[in-house]
Nucleic acid binder design. Structure first.
Lengths: 297, 297
DNA sequence: CACACTTACGATATTCGTAAGGATT
DNA sequence: AATCCTTACGAATATCGTAAGTGTG
């Protein structure tokens, strides 16, 4: 026994309208076509479902039984279709993003704000964790994708470039270099700077960017905010990627972009290889691109 | 957006098997046909649902979302089909019958017994009520059909003959007539008998059967069992339809069929005109015919 | 006689399977 | 090189709408 959705729709409309003509109109088919659909159900089930003559159409007892079930099923079907349509049209859904804390706290909030305004029905979750955990979250499907600085990754993952994150010198506004609008490598290569722990993502990219040179170290700290405090008290300067500058938003400090020929920090979208983003997640990435691409060109 | 049952089945099997070839086998279609079904869903939804290459097939995030809903819907669909098949095959269902008490208590129980053995899944309810209430129950669809003696009924109902119910004389075994195997009208026309209230179905048919004669009355009672008690104590005889004889099953009593040229009581199935019995109810009527037709020929 | 459902039939659309093509491991 | 999915294409099937037929009130 096999009943199609179309047959069920025809059955349901006929049960409601008690008229082949009106039911056919509601189904947007000709009246004989509807007649054939009903006949089809009656033949596959082997049961008469409507008592009908020229003047009257009504369900048989068995038809009544079937009608209750078909009505429920069509309800479920319509709900399925509309819910999935909502997902496709981005009226509903959820996105979970893994991101380095330096990204999650700085460049991401404006995008999140725009995304939530544009797609208020999509739930958003941000997991602000370290780079290696980001990768693990992607692998285990706990996040749709991750935002990290480019790192080496196994071939089960793939990365797509999103934006360049250029280095900036941070100093107090009374520092001699503060009057420059832009700095070259030669101007800062020999300045002792406040450095970060070797395990930190910023330090690793900084070392790579200036390689084979090694920047002189004045003080080594763990957190960016600590460096900000030291600088504000006139105890040094530092060099950090632009996306971390939100941690240095103190009136007495200035940030000056540094021109580097290569080796800028690259922010990437990390996904599983041979995988596809959900429409919701894809919308988020597209919005990231729209926000960040102009700034980093 | 429109997804057919067949497409959903294909989707579900592919999600389970993660192989177009195996899923096609399970759907009993060729592998390219299944490919087309999947392509069809992806095109109508506008979303890629499976990431696939030569070596691997797996759901996309959106596909996973759809899969959960489709699995549930197919479950409902299969349940609908099997449940209705059960009804058609008489493994499930319910029958509610209205019947005169004289029928419900006498001739019906053996049929009920056979019916419940033959169709143990079908629930059975008997409403033993008077004739006029029987008709009302049919009209209001509270019963599938009714079993009554033939009565005049409006043209919203129709009746179908089931069995004849011949009259019997009931007397004590020491009564002079008890030695006869069969009686003619002439032998009993003048005997005073225990009669029943004019409102009772038995009395009405009795009067009709002997019309234009009027049987002499010895005592008038309301219930058959009362008559039985009177007769057992040697206080008279009575004439009743055969189907009520179960109320006279007392060792000292005998029942002797009376030959009447016409006007036997006719037991009928009463249904709504232009209506159809459910498969369950129809099975019950068929069983009634099988049990009663031989006896009344 | 009028109205409503059914049947008949030709046209259109869809679906299917076979065979060839393409891609990945 | 083998395996698996996709594309191409002709055939079978299903569906649809128009028009004629049938029956009931």
């Amino acid at each position: 026994m096999n009943i199609s959705i179309k047959q069920m729709r025809a059955f349901s409309e006929l049960a409601r309208e008690k008229s082949f003509t009106r039911a056919a109109d509601r189904c947007h088919i000709s009246q004989p076509a509807l007649s054939a659909l009903i006949k089809g159900i009656e033949e596959t089930t082997g049961t008469r479902l409507f008592n009908r003559n020229t003047r009257n159409v009504e369900l048989t007892p068995d038809g009544i039984f079937l009608e209750s079930m078909i009505t429920a099923l069509l309800g479920s079907y319509d709900r399925l279709v509309t819910e999935f349509q909502d997902v496709v049209q981005k009226n509903r859904g959820s996105v979970t993003v893994g991101a380095l804390a330096s990204i999650a706290g700085g460049a991401l909030p404006p995008v999140i704000d725009a995304f939530q305004r544009r797609y208020p029905g999509i739930e958003l979750a941000i997991k602000d964790v370290t780079s290696d955990i980001c990768l693990e979250l992607v692998r285990s499907k706990q996040v749709d994708f991750a935002l990290t600085a480019s790192v080496s990754l196994g071939n089960d993952l793939s990365s797509a470039f999103l934006a360049s994150d250029s280095f900036h010198l941070v100093c107090r506004s009374d520092h001699p270099l503060s009057r420059h609008a832009r700095l070259a490598v030669s101007q800062i290569r020999d300045l002792p700077i406040i450095q970060f722990a070797r395990s930190s993502s910023v330090r690793q990219h900084l070392d790579a960017a200036f390689y084979p040179d090694r920047l002189p170290v004045s003080i080594e700290v763990n957190n960016l905010v600590t460096a900000a405090g030291l600088i504000a008290h006139g105890l040094g300067i530092t060099i950090v990627p632009g996306m971390t500058l939100f941690q240095f938003r103190i009136p007495s400090l200035v940030a000056i972009p540094i021109t580097l020929p290569i080796h800028e920090r690259k922010i990437c979208v990390i996904t599983r290889r041979n995988s596809t983003l959900s429409v919701s997640a894809n919308a988020f990435v597209e919005m990231l691109r729209a926000h960040w691409a102009p700034e980093s060109s």
